[in-house]
């Protein structure tokens, strides 16, 4: 087993692309995600017809972080046309007769939501009874999307990259005939998968440490709990990914087919990893998440990073992940009987 693990490590080091995929790609994508989901200091632009808006509202709007643009009465009346012609304006605010306030937005978007938020702030300032004090048990109001969803990416990366590399390595091992040759030596079937897991496990540990340190100390991802549990979960996820990859490699005849199977293997897991709130999915389809290894990992990482959980709270998820890995390990060991009955 040690021999096999050593070989996997040496082989991976000799293939620079694999090393890059395990160690550099996650950091690159995480940085991209940081910029895509991070805070933006976008200042929305709102058009108003100053003549038709009560003076206190205007003065409160001016207090907010907004760019105000003066419109003519006619422009304000034809808000749809105006917004279509002026893409740099996010919203038009009007006070039509005998109806409170009317806001027209170009399309449902984050820019529109920013404009809406600032307008509501102004309204709340005019009428203090409408002011709402929002507080959160976990997290804060000014958290960016990156802060609240970043943990999902830690789980995704520890699973995905190791899965791809190990599945391809095992497919290659089958198609090149090295697996048959390996099975003609006195190695035990269980040792083959265990050796692979140990070999990639070393890379998984390095990868987990690198990603977590980078996310928390460079990208300032908020973390409420103990990093140790996050690392443990990520390594467990990667170990499961090796077994998962080995199982998928049974159904793939070539490296290309591993890629072709990604829509069946990885993409559903991305959706059930916590990116989309599972309790909102109809027909109890959210329960499908219990079939997906990434769910267990993501849930445990969320527990630690968002709720500050320790082992007492996340052990169930870790046990689910370990159980998953064990079942796959047994399937893989059985599948090797094709090459040698012993």
């Amino acid at each position: 087993m040690i021999q096999l693990a050593k070989r996997v490590i040496r082989q991976t080091f000799n293939d620079k692309r694999s090393v890059m995929l395990i160690l550099v790609a996650p950091l690159l994508i995480l940085t991209l995600v940081y910029f895509l989901l991070g805070d933006s200091d976008y200042v929305a632009t709102v058009g108003i017809d100053r003549g038709a808006v009560p003076a206190p509202v205007i003065s409160e709007l001016e207090q907010q972080e907004l760019n105000l643009i003066d419109l003519t009465a006619e422009q304000a009346e034809q808000a749809d046309d105006y917004l279509q012609q002026h893409k740099d304006v996010d919203a038009v605010l009007r006070f039509p007769e005998n109806a409170g306030m009317a806001v027209t937005l170009y399309e449902p978007s984050k820019k529109g939501a920013t404009a809406m938020g600032e307008i509501q702030n102004a309204m709340a300032a005019i009428n203090p009874t409408a002011k709402t004090d929002v507080s959160y048990v976990y997290g804060t109001a000014d958290q960016s999307t990156f802060d609240s969803l970043g943990y999902v990416f830690l789980a995704l990366f520890s699973f995905f990259f190791v899965f791809i590399i190990s599945a391809m390595a095992l497919v290659r091992e089958r198609s090149r005939g090295t697996l048959e040759r390996l099975m003609m030596t006195p190695i035990r079937r269980g040792e083959v998968i265990a050796g692979y897991t140990a070999g990639y496990g070393v890379f998984a540990i390095a990868q987990a440490i690198l990603i977590v340190l980078y996310a928390i100390f460079v990208l300032q991802l908020s973390n409420a709990g103990n990093i140790g549990w996050v690392l443990l979960t990520m390594v467990l996820l990667a170990v499961t990914a090796v077994s998962f990859g080995a199982t998928i490699s049974i159904f793939a005849g070539s490296e290309l087919q591993v890629v072709q199977l990604i829509p069946f293997t990885i993409i559903p897991q991305v959706f059930f990893s916590g990116l989309i709130p599972l309790d909102l999915i109809p027909y109890h389809l959210g329960n499908l998440s219990y079939l997906m290894p990434i769910y267990y990992g993501a849930a445990a990482i969320k527990g630690v990073m968002v709720y500050g959980d320790g082992f007492a709270e996340i052990w169930g998820h870790l046990a689910g992940l370990t159980g998953y890995a064990l079942v796959l390990y047994l399937i893989n060991t059985q599948a090797l009987k094709k090459f040698r009955k012993l």
Binding site: R10, G177, M184
Partner: peptide, 17 residues
């Protein structure tokens, strides 16, 4: 099995080693 040597028809080698 320990006393067998087998040379398959295809090369069955690890190319990255």
């Amino acid at each position: 099995l320990k006393r067998l040597g087998f040379m398959p028809q295809n090369d069955a080698l690890y190319e990255d080693l």
